[in-house]
């Protein structure tokens, strides 16, 4: 089993959840009013995790195609 698959799935799911949650609750100070590239911390960190997860899935698929 290629370990990159479960890791890719976990972090893609987490990324979507966190980024989505950040967008829908973009209101309530808790994180020092920090904006990163115009996003709140949940949205930004969710996107970082989503990119990481998708990269893992990409490399797993690439390795599978190369046998």
């Amino acid at each position: 089993m290629d370990l990159r698959l479960p890791i890719g799935y976990v972090f893609s799911i987490y990324g979507l959840m966190l980024a989505g949650y950040g967008v829908f609750t973009n209101g309530e100070a808790k994180s020092l009013n920090i904006k990163i590239l115009g996003m709140n911390v949940n949205t930004f960190w969710g996107l970082v995790m989503l990119v990481f997860g998708l990269l893992m899935l990409f490399f797993a698929k690439k390795a599978k195609n190369q046998g």
Binding site: Y21, G22, T25, V41, N42
Partner: peptide, 10 residues
Amino acid sequence: HYFPNGLLGL
């Protein structure tokens, strides 16, 4: 102190 829900769960 610093984490909103979401990051808190993480």
